[in-house]
Design a protein around this nucleic acid. Sequence first.
DNA 1: AGGAAGATGTATCAATTGTTACAAAACAAT
DNA 2: ATTGTTTTGTAACAATTGATACATCTTCCT
Lengths: 225, 225
Amino acid sequence: MINYQLLTQCPIFMGITENEVEDLFKKIHFQIKSFSKDEIVVVAGEPVLNLNIVLSGSVRGEMIDYSGKIIKIEDIEAPKPLATAFLFGKENKFPVTVTANNDVKILTMPVSEFLKLLQLSSQILKNYLNSISSRAQFLSQKLHFLSFKTIRGKVAHYLLQQAGEKFHSVELKNTQQQLADLFGVTRPSLARVFGEMQKEGLISINNKTVTLLDKKALNELINNA
Amino acid sequence: MINYQLLTQCPIFMGITENEVEDLFKKIHFQIKSFSKDEIVVVAGEPVLNLNIVLSGSVRGEMIDYSGKIIKIEDIEAPKPLATAFLFGKENKFPVTVTANNDVKILTMPVSEFLKLLQLSSQILKNYLNSISSRAQFLSQKLHFLSFKTIRGKVAHYLLQQAGEKFHSVELKNTQQQLADLFGVTRPSLARVFGEMQKEGLISINNKTVTLLDKKALNELINNA
DNA sequence: AGGAAGATGTATCAATTGTTACAAAACAAT
DNA sequence: ATTGTTTTGTAACAATTGATACATCTTCCT
């Protein structure tokens, strides 16, 4: 039996009631597969032909490098789906090998059945589209940041973008650590740059509020980066 | 009137007959808007509330940097859609300002109507999912490459990828300068790394041929980068 | 063969960033 | 208020890379 209550907590079924999920699942074909601890669920490179959702237990995604060493990438726990970003597209192969951390039950349905779900429920469709779109947008933003060579450039760009044209101050929503990750730098290096820019009179920092004192100079930082 | 024949060449309607497109369009609401040369179609930062498809003419996407300089990003010609990657997701705002290159007709429909299309036609749904998934996968790959912090890491990754699993030597097709540009580093820095790796016995360089002497060690460089 | 142009190897120094460590500050919970 | 936790500021030093310059090696042209 499936715990539909649990499934409603899965990102794909967000905003759908337990009963609706149950109704939808009556209309499509799916299977429940069981795996025991350390059993391999899928191998990296295999084409993604099914949508897999972890119903109980947890699995880990691992990459095998060229020398055969195994590197753990992430844990996926119930009720999360696997590799949703690879169900479609040109390179729809599992990027990682997935192994069971413990006794695991996985709901699996062919992509064709998932397509039916998407057409039956506009909520599921919206959830899925939002999910992969957000992912693409996140990646795109991240790429853009990496194109600035210096940390100063990245910071200047970020602040100007957040502030927009009208405003002269930005309320930081993320911790320095999160920003540092976004920029691909270390946290102390980021803090140092913030400090330097403050000393030079480009910005002024008060708690989580950053005031842009010299937008022109900040621009020039971008153009030189 | 709409040229449905033209629309079938739009990526979103690929694989659908003219008649099918016409039938589908009878079931949804949309508008045709006209713009004259150099008229602004949408401003960067505006939320993407509609799917826009260029029916005739061409538009250009431009970014305005903070100092007011305009940088052209790309041209979009009929029958291509605008900003399809930004219809959904958390940051669904136009990344560029779109301006008409000449007299332009644009088909525009609310996202809610586009959702209807996706649910009416599994072909359109597949087309769209493939399109944004491929984009995300492409970005992900690119990001993976840029995510190596050290030049050594990038070089190691590049060489191992070029060589594949079987081979132990790579014929460089690009000059060091081109490789340096690809990696986003300076040419002497790249040459230095090549030199160091050769001294350490990781690789051996003969003209344009690079022999990988120690694949294991090269892997470790990647993992630490 | 000779010479010019381009590509590569190498050196030196400056600039930037990472690493590590620790203190101060802000925050949350009791 | 007080404690414990998270976040932020800062410092010293190491490692990496950029900038610049120049010698050497290739390639290609005549």
